[in-house]
């Protein structure tokens, strides 16, 4: 092993001008921009659910979509903050997804209460999970790839929030595309798998973001 002085000299000789990383807000805005563009293009090709005009007048559907959007924004910002070693010294903001999830659970609970008599369950089940997973694959790849350029000291959490951001945009896409009003179905086959993938992100974070 070389001694510290030698190492410092080597590192100093090795250094060249580096471009400082963009601010995490800008970074998350960029990621969100790409994801929203991807969502819009997909919806343009595949179409919106035919009853969208009616659904937009249903307060619980609008609340659900907005709460899901809240998760997407909070997890994107959090993933950007977690890409920096010191979380850009905005530690509290990195925990924003917790609040977004609390709000989302509350909205889903109230929507379930309001769903009386309950909407019939659709005939399909796991196909929705597969659809969300396939849709979210691309945002997952580009977010993790972008995060690798930084230096996360919380790579488990960073991986998890990155996957939640990607899968929330996937869940949003399916909610805007599929004709389905069963709260039980969306919880079971859309949102619980989304959370499960977020948990799997802990492992992916270790694999892809460890430096």
């Amino acid at each position: 092993m070389v001694n510290i002085e030698e190492l410092i000299d080597t590192l100093a000789q090795d250094t060249t001008a580096v471009k400082p990383a963009p601010h995490p807000y800008l970074l998350s805005l960029k990621w969100m921009g790409w994801s929203v563009a991807y969502l819009l293009v997909s919806l343009m090709f595949m179409g919106l659910r035919p009853d969208m005009a009616i659904k937009l007048h249903e307060p619980w559907f609008v609340a659900e979509v907005m709460a899901l959007g809240g998760i997407f924004i909070a997890t994107s910002v959090s993933a950007a903050l977690l890409s920096f070693p010191d979380m850009h010294q905005m530690r509290r903001l990195a925990f924003a997804p917790v609040m977004a999830f609390v709000l989302f659970v509350l909205v889903m609970f109230l929507a379930w209460q309001a769903d009386n008599p309950p909407a019939p369950l659709p005939v399909h089940s796991f196909e929705c999970t597969i659809g969300i997973a396939l849709f979210s694959l691309l945002p997952t790849v580009w977010t993790l790839y972008a995060m690798r350029k930084f230096a996360s000291t919380h790579y488990h959490w960073a991986g998890s929030t990155a996957l939640l951001a990607a899968f929330s945009i996937g869940a949003l896409w399916l909610r805007l595309y599929e004709i389905n009003d069963s709260i039980m179905h969306v919880v079971e086959w859309h949102y619980l798998p989304m959370i499960a993938f977020g948990i799997a992100g802990f492992g992916l974070g270790r694999t892809f973001l460890k430096w």
Partner: peptide, 14 residues
């Protein structure tokens, strides 16, 4: 740690 600082120096905001 010094090597890590070197690798991550672009993530420091002045």
């Amino acid at each position: 740690i010094l090597i890590s600082i070197h690798k991550a120096r672009h993530t420091y905001d002045g």
